[in-house]
Amino acid sequence: MADSLSLSTAASLGSDSLYGLEELLALAGERLGEEVTPRTVRLYATEGLIDRPGKDRRRAVYGQRHLLQLLLIRALARRGLSLTAIAPLVTCSDEELGQQLLQLEEPSPSAEQQEALSYLQSLQGERSLSSSPGSSASLLPLLGSPLSSSSASLSPQRSLSTRSAGRSNVASSRWHRFSLAPGVELHLSESASIPPAGKRREAWLARLLERLREQLESES
């Protein structure tokens, strides 16, 4: 019953053509100039960003609306939008989806636009340089260097970022951020007390390292 219902929904949207997942991915990839993976589509579907596919026997089938949604989500995500921000933008009518997509597919930029953009990109570049380890980290000398260089090869872990997200509930506290290695950052609250150099500092660092190891191991 559910199957026939979703099929009829797709049909009522006026999309003559129904695609399998492969076809959908190929079409989207071509339009976007980037590869779209089945995982991405599944993620968007679970997050409710893309309507649930219809079913033809046991095969999931997609229509024009799904394609529009997928194109729009990718176009917005490439502009730096988070999925939560995208969610309300992809629930509108097919026509509106198409319009939004048209707006995003701009003609090639003018000379003035190019100049302003490349200027901003150069500022961006300076920013990432200045936040490289050591240069902006005024508190780092206090801390010593708690992580060995091998940690640079580890990608940021989800449980670490969840942990750091918890701090934002503390409304008035201030946080300092130090880049320890490419892709690895330390967030330090102003209220954190760092033991003075010596045995206590060493023990504190050892505890931190232990916590970090636990986190990384529970992730892998």
Binding site: E112, L117, L120
Partner: peptide, 11 residues
């Protein structure tokens, strides 16, 4: 910088 980039995209 992020706001400026949004405006620059559509300058």
């Amino acid at each position: 910088l992020a706001g400026a980039t949004q405006v620059a995209n559509q300058l």
